[in-house]
């Protein structure tokens, strides 16, 4: 159990809903769900979710903390926004799903080796270096995500596409060496720092009941 998780369990002992409201982005909307199921019916990936959004909301209200946070369901969201567009109660369901996923990750409860989570982490780390996504590095890091052997196999399979992109100047091999960055790199860092401060402040605000 991470320290943060331990602390949260203490703080919100019997009310997972309150914990979600305080810590999850747009979590204060969860109580407004009326269980119509339109979101679950609208989700193009619905069949692949262990618990569709409506069910997740019910589980949050029922206090099923571990089950919700350890679930892979909210990681399945592809941000198609069908659910948001259709929710009769106007819940920002997509945002809540990402908020839940993020919170689960922060607490260290997200399922290990969840591919979306791994990709998200790689994306984030990649972005933070220069303020731009280095596509070559990101692509290669994905190939080798599950080990050297699979990485080489995938690289060989993609060889011709890679060469074609080189020929048509769609890919610059020099990007492997650091790569180009945003114009104002320090400004970018400051911006991210500020955003993280705001987030921390928001959580701090909810902490005092």
């Amino acid at each position: 159990m991470t320290d943060l998780n331990k602390q949260m369990v203490e703080q919100y002992r019997n009310s997972f809903l309150k914990e979600v409201e305080a810590n999850v982005e747009e979590g204060e909307w969860v109580k407004m769900c009326m269980q119509c199921g339109v979101c679950s019916g609208s989700c193009p990936l619905g069949p692949y979710w262990d618990h569709p959004p409506q069910e997740l909301f019910m589980m949050i209200r029922a206090g099923k903390r571990e089950e919700v946070l350890a679930s892979s369901s909210m990681w399945m969201c592809t941000s198609c926004y069908n659910c948001i567009a259709r929710c009769p109660r106007e819940l920002p369901i997509t945002h809540i799903m990402h908020g839940l996923a993020h919170y689960a990750k922060r607490l260290g409860l997200a399922p290990k080796n969840q591919p979306t989570m791994k990709f998200s982490q790689k994306f984030w780390d990649n972005l933070m270096v220069t303020g731009r996504v280095n596509e070559l590095k990101l692509g290669l890091s994905l190939y080798f995500m599950n080990g050297l052997v699979e990485g080489i196999k995938t690289s060989l399979k993609m060889k011709n596409i890679g060469l074609g992109m080189l020929l048509t100047k769609r890919m610059n091999p020099m990007e492997m060496l650091g790569g180009h960055s945003v114009k104002d790199k320090s400004g970018f860092k400051a911006m991210i720092k500020k955003a993280q401060e705001l987030e921390a402040a928001r959580i701090a605000k909810f902490k005092t009941p």
Binding site: L17, K31, M32, M34, Q35, M58, R61, A62, R89
Partner: peptide, 24 residues
């Protein structure tokens, strides 16, 4: 949950806003 009348749905929403839990 059946909340007839013009304001029924608004009243239901108000209850949810106040933190009343509705369990099917």
């Amino acid at each position: 949950l059946r909340t007839p009348g013009a304001g029924g749905e608004d009243f239901y929403r108000s209850g949810q806003n106040k933190g009343v839990i509705f369990t099917k």
